[in-house]
Every structure is written in C-alpha cells, then in structure tokens.
Design a binder for these strands. Sequence first.
DNA 1: CTGTTTGTTCTATATGTTATATAACTAGTA
DNA 2: TACTAGTTATATAACATATAGAACAAACAG
Lengths: 141, 141
Amino acid sequence: MLLSIEPDGPVPIYQQIRDRIVEAIARGRQPAGSALPPIRQLAVDLGVNFHTVNKGYDLLRQEGLLRLGRKSGAVVRRDAGSGPPDPAWARDWTGRLRTLLAEAAAQGMPAIGIVGECEAAMADFAFPAAAEAWQGSGSPP
Amino acid sequence: MLLSIEPDGPVPIYQQIRDRIVEAIARGRQPAGSALPPIRQLAVDLGVNFHTVNKGYDLLRQEGLLRLGRKSGAVVRRDAGSGPPDPAWARDWTGRLRTLLAEAAAQGMPAIGIVGECEAAMADFAFPAAAEAWQGSGSPP
DNA sequence: CTGTTTGTTCTATATGTTATATAACTAGTA
DNA sequence: TACTAGTTATATAACATATAGAACAAACAG
C-alpha cells in the first residue's frame, strides 16, 4: 500500500494524493530519482478516476517536485530543492505556516507544545547533508 | 482597517476572514471578551455579502473561538483554550502541520530554517501565563 | 515499422462549493 | 415600541471536484 486516502473526507482527493506524496518525499521514502506508479495504475489502486490522479501529479509538477515524461512516467526531481527558493512560494508558505500556528495558539496550545509538535514532525524527515542559498525571512512587524 | 482580504485570491473569502481573525486572536490584538464588528458592518467594510462574513464567523463559532449573540454580537470566547484540547482537533491539526512542514522539507528548506520560521511566527503571538492539560502527542511511527 | 506504455488533451456530465441577492424571522435591549 | 444584530430560507450564477469515454503523442522494445 503505497498511498492511502479518505474518499469521503473534507479535503479533495487530488489534494490528498499530492499531500501524501509530498510527505513521502520529505521522509525520504520517495527519494530523488525514484519513480511513482503510473497515473492509470495508481487510479485503479485507489479506486478513483485517472483524471483525479493526473491532477495531483500535475500539481506536484507545477510545484517543481515531479518530472513527468511520456514513457518514463512520474519521477521525483533530482534537483528539487537545490538552488534558491522561489520567493513567491516562500512568502505563501510562511503565510500558511503563520495561520496554522496561530490556530494552535488561539486554541490555547502553549508555545512549548507547538515547537514540540514541529520538532516531532521534522524528526521523521530525511534532510540532505547540505543546504545553501536559504535564509530565514525574519519576522516582519 | 481591522482586516484586509484578497477578493481574487485562491483562498475563499470566508476562509480568509476566519484566518485573519484567528491570527488577531493569537497575537492578542483581539483578546478574550473583545467584540468583533457586526456581520453586516464588516461585510460593508470588506465589500462583500453579509452571508460571506456570516460563514466565516460561524466557522469560528464551531471552532469554539467565538460566541455569537443576538444583541451582543460576535465576541471572542473567554474560555477558548482553557480546559483540555479536543482530541479530534489535535489529530487534525497535527496532520496539517506535518503536511505543511513536509512541503518545506521537500522544497529543500533546511531543518534550521523551518524551526526558525516557526519561532519567528510565534514571536508575534501573545501566550497567556499558564497552560495545563496540554501534552505533546509524541511522534507516531 | 509495429506495438505497448505512458502522459496529454478534449468533451461531457453530475454534484458540491462559493458568493451574491432578497426577504423574512427572532431574540435581546433601550 | 423600535432598534440592533444574528438566524434562516430561497434563488441564482459561477466555479471546483470527480467521473466517464475517447482520442492523441511521444518514448521505447522488439
């Protein structure tokens, strides 16, 4: 079982597919250069239409995480995350992070707990040895 | 200007309204017991229909952050975040956090950078003095 | 060249979501 | 009573999601 989804959940199926694959990449379970199942096959495995899988794969291609080829299929990009980050993506991501953390703070979760959850999540990730050209954005007023 | 939105962005207006208010609560700019603008007035200020604002307020009520009264209007709940967290909410929030952090890791952002962004975001929050009944969920396999 | 595999594109349809627009109703409060 | 403010109902237009079927195009194996 390479991937499981909730067909009746509130989050769209194509988005769940994207999310699960993003997590698989971050955790090193789907390393750079590794192949994903063909669109049609994954669609059969998940019991969904192949257009739905296609939409998820296409999202990942737009995000620069996948390379899609005619016969080669879907492959995790080797240079996905080398080079400097897209400024638009960084801005957007920071915004989404702040909203998500604000939700926890508003719900009464203590700062220690929030940082703890962040670190617990990242303990599952497989970070490559080096990373350059990345710098914190600081905290705007 | 108590709140600004992007009418033509990809995220729904009612969701933006919810997000901005959640952030205002977390940052202490909208403390417990404080009042929000009436639905119709905020709708006029933002240039949207009052049903759209109503949907955002209702979301916050479902999340336990607002109390809506006939004449009292919309007020930030005083006990929003006292007591133990809803287990369903905690599970869901942790899942969303992991997906979001995984996205950054997959994009090549180093662990240091991710933690830094988390801390920078939380530096803007106003945490209350004490917090009990909260405990980390650890990192499931 | 033939055939298979795989992603890509197109049209169509059914259902759900988002946003707007009117209108009316209900409960507090002065 | 009258005002304020949330609540509910109906209708509509536009967009998003998921499914379905068909055909097309490139890469590769034989």
